[in-house]
């Protein structure tokens, strides 16, 4: 009896001490993972800078800003690659933004409830398709289709890349726009309807403008996804590093920054000029996506404060 009691009184502090030790360990683990994320980001940046910045000293500015990308003969003009990326991305935006916005409006405003319940998860599945699968689809389905119907020498072109990228950006644009439209208070609709507007006029003049900043965020995130995409564009754009000349360039082969890095990194001698220039392209790409994401966050922040004002 006495022994049992003694055991009981001892057991409590031991259990507590053990629990405390467990908590400390868990806390340390969580803290470590949090810090490691920061460290990884910094390391990526440091590594990118260390390998890429020498390129700006090894190759003169005139060469880097030139229009010819022939690494084998020492021509490292980045302009065709940058314009190639921008061209493919711009094409993707032109296709995906109207389509994505229209789909979001359809889903939110016109589709019956049961269809909406099907569409939402389907769009999430769309977002999960690996880009190499989409690239494959682009190669065997989209490119031949373009070649036959647009009378092009090869279907592998900037336009094919834009179509595939639009496909990849669509889920992001649709679901973020849908959320933005959903966040518009019902009172906006009521106000417009009470002024004698019909449903469609209300959507065009009151709901979508009220969701404008959220829709801009959707577009930015879509662009961010498109410009950094590699696999699909590598497979369908034809990979010719040439300067786009006018609008017709959209239907000719181009090469993007991402595709260049992916295609050439495996062949390049470690530490060579070419190697450093490829990393420099990575820096340029990083800066562009960083700017796009920054713009998206700024817009998101503005939207947040505006909604706070509404609630007052």
């Amino acid at each position: 009896m006495a022994i049992e009691q003694q055991a009981a009184t001892q057991a409590v502090p031991v259990a507590r001490r053990r629990r405390l030790r467990g908590e400390t360990a868990a806390e340390a683990l969580v803290r470590l993972s949090g810090i490691s994320v920061i460290i990884f980001v910094v390391l990526v940046f440091v590594f990118l800078a260390r390998e890429g910045i020498p390129a700006f000293f090894e190759v003169e500015a005139g060469n880097l800003l030139g229009t010819r990308w022939y690494p084998t003969v020492g021509r490292y003009g980045l302009l065709p690659l940058i314009t190639g990326s921008l061209l493919v991305t711009a094409g993707a935006v032109l296709i995906s933004v109207p389509l994505g916005l229209a789909a979001a409006i359809y889903m939110h405003e016109l589709a019956p409830a049961w269809l909406r319940e099907i569409l939402k998860p389907l769009i999430e599945i769309l977002a999960g398709i690996p880009s190499v699968v989409l690239g494959f689809l682009g190669m065997i389905a989209v490119a031949p289709l373009l070649r036959e119907h647009l009378n092009m020498p090869t279907g592998l072109s900037a336009f094919a890349g834009s179509v595939m990228l639009a496909y990849m950006a669509l889920p992001t644009i649709i679901s973020v726009s849908d959320d933005a439209i959903d966040a518009v208070p019902r009172s906006y609709r009521d106000a417009s309807l009470a002024l004698g507007a019909n449903h469609w006029q209300t959507v065009c003049h009151a709901v979508v403008p009220a969701a404008r900043s959220g829709i801009m965020v959707a577009v930015m995130l879509g662009i961010g996804r498109a410009i950094g995409e590699t696999m699909a564009v590598l497979m369908v754009t034809g990979n010719a590093a040439r300067m786009p000349d006018g609008l017709s360039a959209l239907f000719q082969p181009v090469r993007t920054m991402t595709a260049t890095i992916a295609a050439e990194m495996g062949e390049v001698a470690n530490g060579s000029v070419h190697y450093h220039v490829l990393f420099a392209i990575g820096i340029v790409l990083f800066l562009i996506t960083f700017l796009v994401n920054l713009l998206a966050s700024v817009l998101m922040l503005r939207r947040g404060t505006r909604r706070d004002q509404l609630l007052e």
């Binding site: 208070p185 009172s187 906006y188 009521d190 106000a191 417009s192 009470a194 003049h205 009151a206 403008p209 009220a210 404008r212």
Partner: peptide, 8 residues
């Protein structure tokens, strides 16, 4: 309405 809703 109870809450003033200026259209955007």
């Amino acid at each position: 309405f109870a809450m003033p809703i200026p259209l955007p």
